[in-house]
């Protein structure tokens, strides 16, 4: 009887712990070079100056703190509780800028698609708001 109850106990605890443990076993998706590039890069029909300012604003909006920045070089990196975003801007034309976002966590590069999408959405909203404001 005592063994049975101990077994019940163990089974119940294991059943409860399983989802928690399984979520830690999330495996990273392996992206090809072109898939990664298309996931991380977007083009905007704005000058590099406006796009850079909107990138900085978006980082603030998402609660990131600028860790290093070089407007002339078109580079910004920002951190938020162990997660880091790195942004590289390239001028493709007078009013065309490519933005590449790279994410990392705990010092390791890790593709965080929801975060990349959230950043691009915020950036797009900022650029459109700035355009309407001018």
């Amino acid at each position: 009887m005592t063994r049975r109850s101990a077994l019940l106990h163990t089974t119940a605890l294991l059943a409860l712990a399983a989802p928690g443990l399984l979520s830690g076993c999330q495996s990273d998706v392996a992206y090809s070079q072109s898939a990664l590039n298309s996931l991380q890069t977007r083009e905007f029909n704005f000058t590099i100056d406006k796009t850079f300012d909107a990138c900085v604003g978006s980082l603030f909006d998402l609660g990131y703190t600028i860790r290093s920045s070089d407007k002339r070089g078109g580079f910004v990196s920002a951190v938020n509780q162990g997660s880091m975003l790195q942004i590289k801007l390239d001028q493709l034309g007078p009013t065309n800028t490519a933005v590449r976002v790279s994410t990392s966590e705990g010092g390791q590069t890790r593709v965080d698609k929801p975060l990349i999408d959230a950043f691009f959405n915020t950036l797009e909203r900022r650029l459109l708001t700035a355009e309407r404001g001018t």
């Binding site: 850079f52 300012d53 900085v56 600028i66 860790r67 290093s68 920045s69 070089d70 407007k71 002339r72 910004v76």
Partner: peptide
């Protein structure tokens, strides 16, 4: 960190 160009 600081960047005069970006104003940060």
């Amino acid at each position: 960190a600081s960047d005069q160009g970006a104003g940060t």
